[in-house]
Design a binder for these strands. Sequence first.
RNA 1: GGCCUAUUGGAGAAGAGGCUUAACUCACAUGCCUUUCACGCAUGCAUUCAUGGGUUCGAAUCCCGUAUAGGUCACCA
Length: 553
Amino acid sequence: MYDNKYLANLIFPDVTETLDDLEKRYPERNLPEGAEVTRFAPSPTGFLHTGSLFTSLVAQKVAVQGGGVFYTRLEDTDTKREIAGSGEDLIRQLAVFGVVPSEGYLGDHQEGNYGPYIQSERADIYKVAIKHLIEIGRAYPCFCTKEELDEIRNRQEKMKVVPGYYGRFAKYRNLTVDEYVELINSGKPYVIRFRSLGDHNLKVEADDLVRGHLLLTQNDQDIVIYKSDGLPTYHFAHLVDDHFMRTTIVTRGEEWLPSLPTHLELFEAMGWKAPKYAHLPVIMKMDNGIRRKLSKRKDTEASCAYFLQDGYPVYAFKQYLFTIANSNFEEWQIANPTLTIDDFHFSFDNMSRDGALFDIGKLNFFSKEFLAKKTAVEMTEFVKDYASKYNQELLDLINKDETYFTKVMDIEKDKPNPRKDYEKCADILDKVKFMYEPYYSTLMKGELPWSTTLDHEVMKATLKDFGDTVELNLTEQEWFETLKQCGLRHGFAASKKEYKAEPEKYLGSVNDVAEMVRIALTSSKNSPNIYYVLRILGKDEIVRRMNIACETL
RNA sequence: GGCCUAUUGGAGAAGAGGCUUAACUCACAUGCCUUUCACGCAUGCAUUCAUGGGUUCGAAUCCCGUAUAGGUCACCA
């Protein structure tokens, strides 16, 4: 007659440490009142997902604002799905968005007293906990094969009962210890399952920081806690890690809500106090009229790298994410324009329970605002940094003459309300290329929006005259006067009003003159203020451009 | 299919029984400004809070049913 203790020793003969040893090794953290310990625990299975960034931003904020600890942990228990190097990538990407943990898995190294912070390096710790559960009869080995499990499921489907490994369907749940011992000694492969005491007809109460008080169905599944590869499943690793790393708030996506009862029962079985939970809404997307979760495979917005590639400012992106996180953030930012997100006080109470649709329009708004506030020099620096990483063509353009590029960025910056024409760096090349050769020449060879009513000879004469007489050392007002004079010499009224009053007397108005000069200068009807463009180009270039323009007429 | 969660305008949302003839932000529309565009300014944009019932003198706010959407039911996290 064997007992559970014998069974536990048979399964984990090398495990000599006890739970008490671990409690001593990872003591309660000494933190001020109200300080929280949060974490971001990604799996190394790919790039940084927008939803993950969102979750990590919230976790970090909650810890930092209360003087607590934010740490990272690598959840690499699924060796099959692991993508080599993605753990380091994740940490690097996080850093780009200002999410820098003070403790934990940091890519190339680990830091802190509660480690290791890589789950695959914590196998011994999990074993101590599992051994304990076996000893107290709350865990047992299960020898089911994949086929047996499938068969159980099929039977349950036919019977129309809740599927899964529980109660009377749990084939190995009620063996005697002797039987377990015999099976193990026979060499049959097995996993360890939790012995649940729950009942799915009963409820369990739970509190969630964003959802409030919940009444959930109890767990009754004898879930696998220890896989045949010697590593725990997520559920068990979460339990052990968040307990011994002394996490006080678990932030995670709402897809975890259904497993909350399981986790709660696990904590209870271990005799541990469960942390507080915050199940965050997921970011959605409208796809053909239906709302769905951002998909890693289908949606470019799902990857944080996508926004970086497009050259969205990190701060703007964070502002956007914070409007989703806390509904009062926008109003706060408007009321406190000089303060940053770091000064904002986040609260779970102001978080919405259902997933927001990803709104690129709103991101664009924040981004435009942000870029417009930069000075020309800052802008050049910012764009250059972007170009050096993502856009060689743009980088070449800047490097050709950085001072010149800064002048282009400086257009109308001296006005009280600066232009907001760039929403991301990826837009910039297209918007400024007319200021450069060979782009200008190429543009002028294309379709040009010249007036269809004006006589081409008159236009040519006007443009030539304009180039020959243009004065650059004038104020904008004065310069506009000379433009009017030029128009007057060729039969254009000095203002739209005058033209409208006596249309038979003129060919058009100064507006028409400005338009043709604009096209000659930029190839387009829409451009920044020509006065500024002229001053950057210089007299010789203006004359040259007028000649090129005349040739297209 | 079972279970869970959600449902206020195009989007994010405020709203906790009377102060809401539903705040604010983005988007959109119109007008003004103006040498174009952008900026800025002004105005407009939900008689209605998924829906049906109920409670109440009074409901977006409380209760019940229905619908819809999302999530979840692995030796994945």
